[in-house]
Measured scan of single mutants.
Amino acid sequence: AVCQVIGMYDYTAQNDDELAFNKGQIINVLNKEDPDWWKGEVNGQVGLFPSNYVKLTT
């Protein structure tokens, strides 16, 4: 993983390639090539999510 982030809001996947997560959930970021849509993993599920829905862990 590149880094870990925390969901600031609940996110519901809109497409099959997206990653759903809940507020407060830890997401392992796998790829930040696109500044707006990062690739991440939660509980074995991998997908894209909007980078503005998360904050970096300290």
Results as ranks from 00 to 15, higher is better:
Val2Ser: 10
Val2Glu: 13
Val2Met: 11
Val2Asp: 12
Val2Gln: 07
Val2Thr: 11
Cys3Ile: 11
Cys3Gln: 05
Cys3Arg: 06
Gln4Cys: 06
Gln4Ser: 10
Ile6Gln: 11
Ile6Tyr: 06
Ile6Phe: 05
Gly7His: 07
Gly7Asn: 00
Met8Ala: 15
Tyr9Gly: 11
Tyr9Trp: 15
Tyr9Ile: 15
Asp10Met: 14
Tyr11Phe: 10
Tyr11Ala: 02
Tyr11Gly: 05
Thr12Arg: 13
Ala13His: 02
Ala13Leu: 01
Ala13Phe: 06
Ala13Gly: 09
Gln14Pro: 02
Asn15Glu: 11
Asp16Met: 11
Asp16Lys: 11
Asp17Ile: 08
Asp17Gln: 13
Asp17Val: 07
Leu19Asp: 03
Ala20Asn: 07
Ala20Glu: 12
Ala20Tyr: 05
Asn22Met: 14
Lys23Trp: 02
Gly24Leu: 05
Gln25His: 12
Ile26Tyr: 05
Ile26Glu: 10
Ile26Ala: 10
Ile26Met: 07
Ile26Thr: 15
Ile26His: 09
Ile27Met: 04
Ile27Pro: 05
Asn28Phe: 10
Asn28Ala: 11
Asn28Arg: 13
Val29Ser: 02
Leu30Gly: 00
Leu30Trp: 07
Lys32Glu: 06
Lys32Arg: 14
Lys32Phe: 06
Glu33Gln: 13
Asp34Ser: 11
Trp37Pro: 00
Trp38Ala: 06
Trp38Lys: 05
Trp38Leu: 04
Lys39Ile: 07
Gly40Glu: 03
Glu41Trp: 05
Glu41Gln: 01
Glu41Met: 05
Glu41Phe: 00
Val42Asn: 03
Val42Lys: 08
Gly44Val: 03
Gly44Gln: 05
Gly44Tyr: 04
Gln45Asp: 14
Val46Arg: 08
Val46Ile: 14
Gly47Gln: 05
Gly47Thr: 00
Gly47Trp: 02
Leu48Pro: 01
Phe49Ala: 03
Phe49Glu: 02
Phe49His: 06
Ser51Leu: 01
Ser51Glu: 00
Ser51Asp: 02
Asn52Pro: 06
Asn52Arg: 14
Asn52Met: 12
Asn52Glu: 11
Tyr53Phe: 11
Val54Asn: 03
Val54Phe: 02
Val54Gly: 02
Val54Lys: 01
Lys55His: 08
Lys55Met: 14
Leu56Ala: 14
Thr57Tyr: 13
Thr58Ala: 09
